[in-house]
């Protein structure tokens, strides 16, 4: 029996067109479907693919490209294990398998009319970049738009050439901070939560989108709450062990939710009790 295109477990081939090194362990891959399918891979910001390194394994990776230009598939990958190691070492022309897109997305449509605060830490900027692209492409629909980004050190910042470009937009506020500095850094030093109190947004009319390590999200959610942003207007992206991405293998369960189909983006008030439970 041939695995049909509708078989959600069958990867489609994609070829690596370009590899960009972001940091010592993080790379951005740009992929094209080899038979130039008309629309590449159309997706909503916040969704992810299961990326397969033939013969090695498969991992969930958020899509980091521009949803308005899906012809090229972009994935920013951090090398943390066997598969991601191999993924980061893939050169131009090599073949990967892709299944997806899967999962829920950032509320970029629903946030129209509000201020938007994006708070991300470390590699957490990668799943939020598509949301930022979308918002910038429809800038007139939103109030103030603020990006708050924290990384470990200046060398760990992603998209180093793009950040100053975003900063240069008159209608976008970009604040970057690092936990620890290296020589030559003249920017903010301190955890990303310190960027929240001075940020100028109207808490009662703001949609907040948060992504990063779970501990960072916990601290950030507290700070947003302190500022008065309601939990119903706060969105986070969760991560768990994921294997099938279609709700069959059971690994990504998070309380009653499956992160692969009910997430990875969640409205915070809907998962607040589970989020607060240890080892769930």
């Amino acid at each position: 029996m041939m695995a049909s295109l509708s078989d959600p477990m069958a990867p489609r081939p994609f070829r690596v067109q370009r590899v960009r090194k972001e940091t010592y362990d993080t790379f951005t891959l740009e992929l094209d479907p080899p038979h130039s399918a008309a629309n590449g891979l159309s997706f909503a910001p916040g969704q992810f693919n299961m990326v397969y390194v033939p013969g090695v394994g498969e991992v969930p990776i958020s899509i980091s490209g521009d949803p308005g230009r899906p012809a090229t598939l972009v994935h920013t990958v951090r090398s943390v294990g066997t598969v991601t190691n191999k993924l980061c070492a893939r050169g131009r022309g090599s073949m990967l398998g892709v299944r997806g897109p899967f999962g829920s997305s950032w509320p970029v449509e629903e946030a129209a009319g509000s201020d938007v605060v994006i708070v991300c830490g470390g590699i957490g900027l990668a799943p939020l970049r598509p949301a930022l692209y979308h918002i910038m492409a429809h800038r007139e629909k939103y109030g103030r738009v603020i990006l708050l980004y924290g990384a470990r050190t200046p060398d760990d910042l992603l998209y180093k050439t793009e950040l100053p470009k975003w900063r240069g937009h008159f209608d976008l506020q970009v604040e970057v901070t690092v936990d620890a500095t290296s020589n030559g850094w003249r920017g903010n030093v301190g955890v990303v939560t310190t960027l929240i109190p001075p940020a100028r947004f109207d808490p009662e009319n703001t949609v907040a989108m948060v992504c990063g390590p779970e501990v960072m999200m916990r601290f950030t959610l507290l700070e947003l709450e302190r500022r008065g942003v309601p939990a119903e207007n706060t969105f986070i992206s969760m991560e768990r062990n994921m294997q099938c991405a279609v709700g069959f293998c059971g690994h990504c369960q998070f309380g009653p939710t499956f992160i692969c189909k009910d997430g990875p983006v969640f409205r915070y008030d809907r998962i607040q009790p589970i989020f607060a439970t240890r080892e769930i």
Partner: peptide
């Protein structure tokens, strides 16, 4: 088995799940 594929010159799924 879920599928079997050939990975020479690309990636082609030859067979799907076992009958």
């Amino acid at each position: 088995r879920m599928w079997r594929a050939k990975i020479r010159n690309g990636f082609h799924i030859e067979e799907g799940p076992e009958e």
